[in-house]
Amino acid sequence: MAEKRLLENKTVIVTGSKRGMGRQMVTTFAENGANVIAHARVQDDEHMDFCNTLAEKDHVKIIPVYFDLRNESEIKNGIKTIRAKKMVIDGLVNNAGISYTALLQMTSIDQLREIMDVNFFAPYILSQYISKMMLRNKKGSIVNISSSAALDGNPGLSAYGASKSALLCMTRSLAAELGENNIRVNAICPGVTATDMINDMKDDIFRIQKEASFLKKVATPDDIANTAMMLLSDMSKYITGQVISVDGGITQFSKR
């Protein structure tokens, strides 16, 4: 018997789908039967081809949308484009993000604002508008990709960690606000994950992170995509307001 596709007939939005975890999410969700609205910052042929190829392979719709998450009016126009598709939106994954590591004195306020714009304000605005669409159907699942940096307090991560912590507060609060309309809101805190984002990580830090994991390896994008899929699917229909660490136990390790 063919395996059941976990997201069959659902439509989900994924931000930052050009690279890394976002790209893997689109792949995993499509394989599992979802129609995906695949957001990226700017239009390009490679991303269009990626969407078209997946759509054909998995017999789903993959609709690319393009807007810069630093720009509120671009975000709103993007949402208008999504609304114009007249699709019932079942899920939103606020995945796109930027990282930044610098000590307090080396963090400019402009840099801090940009991090907050992309990592917190954009997910906030998207949740505001997309949850209104979910409200009409009295169902939905929002998944926020935070970070293990939101839970620890390592040097150099005051800006990035704060933006990701803000996302966790938003997650819990929205879960409480939207729950009675059957909209669930959860967050994932990935540990170090093999994507472009960690390209600049120093070798010794990478090694320490790997060693600190109970599993002695870093995460791969599919570890995060699979967890997001579970949270979007009806398998998790009684899970809301939760923060799920997908970090090989690193945050537990640091408590010892």
Partner: peptide
């Protein structure tokens, strides 16, 4: 506040 959100969703629709 909950009714308000439902009103907005209804008006938008």
């Amino acid at each position: 506040s909950v009714g308000h959100m439902n009103l907005v969703a209804t008006l938008e629709e």
